[in-house]
Nucleic acid binder design. Structure first.
Lengths: 148, 148
DNA sequence: CGATTTGGTAAATATTGTTTACTATAAGAT
DNA sequence: ATCTTATAGTAAACAATATTTACCAAATCG
């Protein structure tokens, strides 16, 4: 038993690597299908919308970035045809976002890729452990919200 | 049982949120202690080095970014006093990186913060589940490597 | 020894995000 | 009714970071 029996890998590093595993696969599939102009956090926006009208403010909170950055991100997704944006009739300050047809196609493809990666993971790790993982990650993101 | 009984949150989104929980806590602590000039991925570099000499090429592979970007990142960390860099005596193309005193201090503080977040997580989720999470994340990052 | 590979740099550019304002609408309190 | 304050978002300049394209020098291989 020598000194470096075990290098402790930190949670953040594991989380980063795991997220990149999904990210890389998703990017590759979307690029191949012609959806090659989605900005970095755009994938999370597409994933969050799922054919329901969504206020921009919700996206801002969800992404956890400045409202300007979120606005720019949505701008880009609108001008590239992934999103539609319209003014709320009841409160004319408010913007409502929804997926366009192209956006929905990309979102569907993305979820298929995620499923594929999930399936490959399930070959290496029991479904039970994956469930524990989801619960743990959920607990982590909860605590960070309560810090605000 | 109505139509939206369960909104399935994707793994990538969970991973992002969880990573941000750590990231936010780490940033806050480091900023408060005066280590407020560490670039985005710099934290991963500091975390990976742990007082051993490390070839730059290893960092490049570890970060999974272009070697130019990794080089710039290390440049910034050197000029801000977190790293030292020297030419390898045996292979004079190769650069060897190591933590400076300041870099080690920051790394220690970062690991303390991580431990604190880990501990808080352990109050909400069993240690067993956390172990399962680590194993699952490890499996995920492995599969992505084999794709290369 | 010449060709190729490996490890890295340089400079221009593109992409993202924050900062510091600012506008318009809405909601409450006189 | 209008004055004040809060909410939702925009605009423009800037800062930080990553990629692209092109290199160079040292090592290795034939």
């Amino acid at each position: 038993m020598n000194a470096q029996t075990r290098i402790p890998v930190s949670m953040p590093a594991l989380l980063r690597a795991a997220r990149r595993a999904y990210g890389g696969a998703i990017r590759a599939d979307l690029d191949r299908a012609g959806y090659d102009d989605i900005p970095r956090n755009g994938l999370y926006v597409l994933g969050a919308l799922a054919n329901r009208d969504t206020p921009l403010s919700e996206i801002i909170r969800y992404l956890g970035m400045s409202k300007q950055a979120a606005g720019q991100l949505v701008d880009a997704l609108v001008s590239r045809g992934y999103l539609q944006r319209e003014v709320d009739a009841e409160d004319r300050r408010r913007l409502t976002i929804r997926l366009s047809a192209r956006g929905e196609d990309a979102a569907i493809l993305m979820h298929e890729t995620i499923k594929r990666v999930d399936a490959r993971l399930a070959q290496r790790v029991s479904q039970e452990w994956i469930d524990h993982t989801r619960a743990t990650l959920l607990a982590l993101s909860d605590t960070s919200q309560s810090e605000t």
